[in-house]
């Protein structure tokens, strides 16, 4: 079904989505296909960020080399995560700086890698989506997407086109949720304090649903909200934009939604 001019997109689904919440991957694929892309999913594991941030550059490089090879054939590489897209587009070049063989390839991959929502709006020029979602939502700006990739207006723009949805801004939406990858486990107590501040502000919005663009942050916030007995439902923004909200929200059972 390849059509002349149809962009060929390699979906980098991210390890968390692959393992924990595949429905985000399908929502991403639908959004991309609706926007006229041909979506393919090459064999993949992880972007290597945990190793990179742990100071293990050798492992980070080995995993990155794997990703570079797997995604070479595509016009674009798109990830439903600012964090993983940022790892590829900002940090892969840093990992291979000075490597005559891999630096050009890392730079080439970096240049064609995007976070999902900003790819839809900034590259494909998507102005609106044909989705329906009844209720009030609030939105958390995940750190890597916001500060490494400048994602702020894009999700709000597309959410504005969802029928039935109204967005209430979250106070201090740009403040970290306290996830930080292994930080959340290594410094669980501090992470807990930070996420508790976040969930308190989420509560103040009175929104029924919390959205964000990174599953790591979403698991952290959902995990805290559920532990606190909150009724706020937590979803990846792509699920709402794709109109694919049949699956139970993050951290909720099949019946409870």
């Amino acid at each position: 079904m390849s059509v002349e001019g149809q962009p060929r997109v390699g979906l980098f689904v991210t390890c968390l989505v692959d393992l924990i919440r595949p429905s985000i991957g399908f929502a991403a694929a639908k959004l991309l296909e609706d926007a006229g892309c041909r979506v393919e999913v090459p064999a993949q594991t992880c972007c290597g960020q945990p190793a990179f941030n742990a100071g293990d550059r050798d492992t980070a490089r080995a995993i990155a080399a794997q990703t570079i090879a797997a995604f070479e054939p595509y016009d674009y590489v798109v990830a439903p995560s600012g964090s993983c897209a940022g790892q590829i587009s900002k940090h892969y070049p840093e990992l291979f700086a000075g490597d005559p063989n891999l630096a050009p390839k890392a730079n080439a991959l970096a240049a064609k890698t995007y976070e999902l929502i900003s790819f839809l709006t900034d590259v494909l020029g998507v102005e609106s989506v044909k989705a329906h979602f009844d209720g009030t939502v609030t939105y958390h700006d995940s750190c890597s997407g916001l500060r490494e990739l400048g994602i702020k207006a894009q999700p709000r723009k597309l959410l504005g086109s969802v029928a039935g949805l109204s967005l209430v801004e979250l106070q201090e939406s740009e403040v970290c949720c306290g996830f930080g990858g292994t930080f959340s486990v290594k410094y669980g107590e501090i992470s807990d304090k930070i996420v508790s501040e976040k969930t308190a502000r989420i509560g103040k919005t009175h929104a029924a649903t919390l959205l964000a663009g990174d599953l790591g942050c979403l698991m952290n916030m959902a995990g805290k909200l559920k532990r606190q007995g909150s009724a706020v439902q937590v979803r990846h923004v792509a699920e709402v934009l794709a109109g694919m909200t049949d699956e139970a929200p993050i951290g909720e059972g099949k019946q409870s939604a």
Binding site: P22, V41, G188, K226, R227, G251
Partner: peptide, 15 residues
Amino acid sequence: TKYRDFPAPQGDTFQ
């Protein structure tokens, strides 16, 4: 999990 719940995987992996 000392501080928050851990969301369960949906089932089969995306891939």
